[in-house]
Amino acid sequence: MKIKIIIFLIILNLNVVNAETSLVDSNKIFKNLRCLVCQGQSVGDSNSEFAQTIKLVVRDQIKEGKTEKEIYEFLIEKYGDWIVYKPPLNKVNFVLWLFPYLVFVAGGTIIFLFLKKRDNH
């Protein structure tokens, strides 16, 4: 039985590799950028002058062969962290990225301790 699962997972993984080697997706990048002149909209969702210019620049940079990460870094340098919806992991944002997992681990530990206490009785 278990062997079957492993075979399936290998087949799956082959497909996954296929899916992930595709090109840089401009729509995805637009969605991850905040339109600075709008109220809570992404560049992808907005059609403001600013969003249109950003779209042009991002498309150009994709053509130049820049990776997604390089494009974000370029825009952060020009506009600050405010422009990306995924805050980079740095000394200001580490609480944001780590705290949820901390809560997750702590919650698991608390439940585990409850059960262990009981099992020892």
Partner: peptide, 30 residues
């Protein structure tokens, strides 16, 4: 866990702004 994650993501920009004078956006990719 979901609650804390969403709550933290929502109020985090307030904290960075007040404590470090630094604006961040927390959105869908996070």
């Amino acid at each position: 866990f979901y609650l804390i994650t969403v709550l933290l993501g929502t109020v985090y920009p307030i904290f960075t702004e007040v404590l470090t004078d630094h604006k961040v956006s927390v959105g869908p990719p996070f």
